[in-house]
Amino acid sequence: MKVDGHETEAAGTLLDVILALGIDLPHLCKDDNLPPIGACRTCLVEADGRIVAACHTPAAAVQEVQTRSVRAIELRQAVLRLTARMHGREPDVSGGPRSGELWAAYAAHGLERPSYPSRPRSAVDLSSPFFEFHEEPCILCGRCVVACQQLQHIGAIGIAGTATSARVTAGAAVAFAESACTACGSCVAACPTHALRPKPLRATHRPGDARGEEG
């Protein structure tokens, strides 16, 4: 098969082939270690003239892929503009920016055009001792949920609700600390934004640390 003019072996999915060739393609909901979800729609490419999501299209049946056709780029731009509805600026969170994949995709697609009106969401859950959930930056990619349910087999979180009510939800709509969450951190590692972020581990707040400021 051919990808952007390069001859290559057809193995796995189109995304596998594309990434193996060192070609950049956003894939916000596809984690290397997890099965495809198909939710973010940022991995669109043109395959034999059809627009498909690279992350869940087997390479075997495809002859020619174009990741940079005008059509593919235009659709990815439009999807990214819709993605940008959901979140605001990258905040100054400890450990540096965490939404690298997302901002790189915006930059690569020249998203200087005005975006669609934003759809702010504001739930915050600080109950876990090790991480925090902030709904505002969440792009509902579903990676955290698949990591929790299918990688860890814990099933502490899901995405509850339909349409624009859909949101990452622990247990039966309880706080993380009251759910089956074991604080394994898989969801935090899988999250491509800073929606799920580690708790700042400041020395003075370390559990068991007897030499805190008050001491």
């Binding site: 939710a39 439009a78 669609y116 509902l140």
Partner: peptide, 9 residues
């Protein structure tokens, strides 16, 4: 259903 970005948003 709220799963994918183009339709939900």
């Amino acid at each position: 259903c709220g799963k994918c970005t183009p339709c939900r948003e």
